[in-house]
Design a protein around this nucleic acid. Structure first.
Lengths: 242, 242
DNA sequence: TTCGGTTGTCTAGATTAATAGACATCTAGG
DNA sequence: CCTAGATGTCTATTAATCTAGACAACCGAA
């Protein structure tokens, strides 16, 4: 049933599977997890091992144990983030959450890495403004972004972003009335370091990473962004254009 | 540096990071891994722990240890799989591999799960043909697909697929001259069970999952597919339409 | 109040992971 | 032919994980 000796602790494998089952709506009828003894039998492990897994999910605020009653399921449901020609970070989640919040963690102007200058068709080492942001939906972090803008054209865009809390508005302040997504590259890795903390993930959690280039209406690249989404809270969708 | 007591063995965390570094081209200059003692110092662990990690990568045929010389890096580089309005499984990888191979694992006709009938706008429990396939590039498995076709319209499509080895050709045999992708939903999870074996992944490895619906030119859904890609070998790209 | 079912806690032992050190084995190069 | 530097193998010890069992604490309902 479960893999032993795999380099991943049994309780973590079980936690992953239970998180998946919860997001899949497997326990929606009752809103409760099955009793620990039942889960232990189902996974073929000791009850203590299941308890470790449940403790991990409780740490993530996914379940809430209640002595004498059972273990309640708190949140479920994936949010959907649409990717298309007119992808906007804040708008995308739109009506799926009651409250959306963007936070600017850091802003700097520095020589950009080669991957960035290549994507923006700049000379190697060109200075760029770098913005580090986190977005939360209903108090839960849902994305962590690192954006680059050519400094020659967008010097001070960090201040504009700070005022408006929106990339779209900040770009408009620099004469970019509209912008389109030129390309998106999607991958997935295990969460690490800063992302783990900012997105409040446990070690071994998966983050979807979307690397995107946006251009203005003249097809000139204006932004390079690498956004990380917690895979257990967000699904990416690719929709045809209207 | 590395997380202990996290439910994920140190050697596996290190293996993940090294696999990422390899795919990132960090060691392309020499084509060799740094010596085990250097890696051990860099990660702050014992040499034996690094050796466990390297053994895991060797198991995946990512590196090849050579006594007295060092540890050679075998393959690297991600393949890119484009997702768009005209996504085709085989064509997508096109020129990126010398040899592409599709294999039909299983075919069955059965009542489809609700997620499938919902997506194909069929009545719950409608019979569908289910195809299980694996695709390999240069001998390495790169995707594992589960497809559903409405049985009323496509009974026997498994035979057509077996003959041609292509979904596109199989659909054409049933009068679908062309088809378009209506929606794609992307997520990522840890590899499990059959996928782990078929894609030759180790436990804890990440698979990107793309759930797609294709329609014919009259906008009638013809196929529901759930494709799993090994995240360490494939990146998904979303390109605007030409 | 009593009872069945649930989570919470404790102890003990067995298995697996990680550290530490020593030394063998192999290769390229001086 | 050596030697420096690399991987391969072995033993021993410590720490973390998993199993096993017992019982306490708590809740809801009969």
């Amino acid at each position: 049933m479960m893999e032993r000796q795999a380099g991943v602790a049994l309780w973590r494998q079980i936690a992953d599977r239970m998180r998946l089952a919860i997001n899949n709506g497997d326990f929606d009828e009752t809103g409760m997890m099955p009793p620990e003894t039942v889960l232990a039998a189902r996974f073929g492990v000791n009850r203590h091992t299941v308890r470790s897994a449940l403790a991990s999910l409780a740490e993530e605020d996914i379940v809430q144990p209640m002595q004498g009653i059972g273990t309640r399921i708190l949140r479920s449901r994936h949010l959907r983030f649409p990717i298309g020609r007119r992808t906007r970070l804040s708008q995308g989640l739109g009506a799926q959450a009651r409250e959306l919040e963007g936070l600017l963690l850091e802003a700097a102007c520095e020589a950009a890495p080669q991957a960035v200058t290549d994507a923006l068709t700049l000379a190697p080492g060109t200075a760029c403004v770098r913005l580090e942001t986190v977005h939360s939906a209903d108090g839960r972090p849902v994305s962590r972004s690192t954006s680059f803008f050519p400094a020659s054209r967008f010097a001070g865009i960090d201040a504009a972003y700070r005022r408006s809390g929106s990339i779209t508005a900040a770009l408009r302040a620099f004469g970019v009335s509209d912008y389109l997504r030129k390309s998106t590259e999607i991958s997935a890795v295990h969460a690490e370091g800063d992302d783990m903390q900012r997105l409040r993930l446990s070690p071994g959690a998966i983050v979807l990473t979307a690397t995107a280039v946006n251009t203005d209406l003249a097809d000139v690249p204006v932004q390079y962004a690498r956004t990380r989404f917690p895979a257990d809270r967000i699904k990416l969708t690719v929709e045809p254009e209207s």
